[in-house]
Design a protein around this nucleic acid. Sequence first.
DNA 1: CCAGTGTGTCATAGT
DNA 2: TGACTATGACACACT
Length: 495
Amino acid sequence: MCAAVNCVLHQRGNCEALANPEKIHGGVSMSSSSPGSRPHHVPQQTEMDLTWQELMAITEEFEAPGENPFEPVAYHPAEAAAALGGFGMSQAPAEPLLPGCGTNPAMPYEGSYPEAMAACQRMGNCAEPLYERPGVQVGSRLLPTTNSIQPPLMNVLDHMDLTGPSDRNPAMESVCRAQVCPMPGQEEILKQTPPDDLESDSGLSLGSSPPVASPGNVITGGTAYMGTELTRGYSDREPMEGTVEHGRMRPNLFYSMDYQHPMNTYSYPAAPSSYYPPPSSLPHFQQHQRLQQPSSLKHPHVLAPALHDLHLNGSGLPGNRVDSFRGTCGKLKGAAGMPARGEGPLSRDERRALALKIPFPLDKIINLPVDDFNELLTQYTLNDAQLTLVRDIRRRGKNKVAAQNCRKRKLENIVNLEGELNQLRAQRDHLMREGAEYQRNLALVRHHLSDLYVEVFSQLRDEQGLPYSLDHYSLQQANDGSIFLVSHNTAELGE
DNA sequence: CCAGTGTGTCATAGT
DNA sequence: TGACTATGACACACT
């Protein structure tokens, strides 16, 4: 024995809250009757609460705990966007989640972050050229425009050392002192040091990493090791030796070679990539400079900044010269601001090249295309030791650049991933905000539905003389969209 | 003295 | 096959 009141509620069928049959069915107890059936109704006052709970369940279906897309848990961005589109709420899912941020999480980032990176590399008037120089990589590779920097990126920037080139004067002063006052026995060390320190791990200096990373870079002029009186051995294991030798050698090396190879079509840049000191910094070299027609003197506009820098710093030290010739736009080296390993004194390969009198600059050895390099080798008569050294220098130099590029890419990847993470976090926050708004709207709908249910039931009960209270019935929708009031007992009460 | 960082170098795999 | 590149690992210098 069952009773049900199936009341056609066409006039309520367009109710916004009831318009979705699936949602209504989802939480309503359907009893055993089909929409078309007319179950009989059995009065049971204890069912009132259940009925009300079922009504509440209609809306609770929207917010199943495990299905709440706004849970602050890890999610796939695309899935989150899809879930947003399925809400069916007033917030149009088609709207971009973020300004300039489509549903595809990769889109906004790919559009914005590379721009930031590009802007970074364009930043300033010398950022890009400096970028190719290892000495300035740290300073330039993390210089995106701050307008587009995410907070974590700012954190990265916080660690950047953007101090000017003159912040290493103390170190330079130490070098100066070393130059002026060589350590006791230093000369003896210089004479006794073997010419080739194979165990030395000091890197190539090469004027701070030739700009070969970019094919379009102009191959810079460099150092050649010929025509010097330096035939003694060199060891980078003796700091003072390196300093003193550095002071003695660099002017020679820097100004002695104006690469005039017949096949040479490479023009030296205005500022040689080498870090050799200007002549005024080392007076006892000026004789050599005059005799050998320093190439830099052919470019007084190049030398002027260096000299100016020297005057400003008042030391004329290698470090200052380094800053002058390596550029002054931004940080030149690592955060420590100290010369990289092998950059201060002559590097191992530089000393070897000097010792073996390699007749062309290391920059050429490293940067020339292989064909030009081989042709260059044919222009000179080199013994096996020289050939081996030249090829080793070329290999190490290229690998050095490769390592720098590799590290640069690593760093860029880290920065990019950090940017992606920020984008995802922003998307998550946006979804959370939308979810909160959705919950508010849902509460309104639920309230409205409750009121509507009471109203409909009261109307039906009054019109049809139904004997029971609201708790005895639940709403049910037929295939044609009409709404039935179904009693919890299966007795049909009528349509 | 130790940890962290930057750099050069080597070995190796891939192109 | 040689040249080149990319990258992990290591050592070293320096802070």
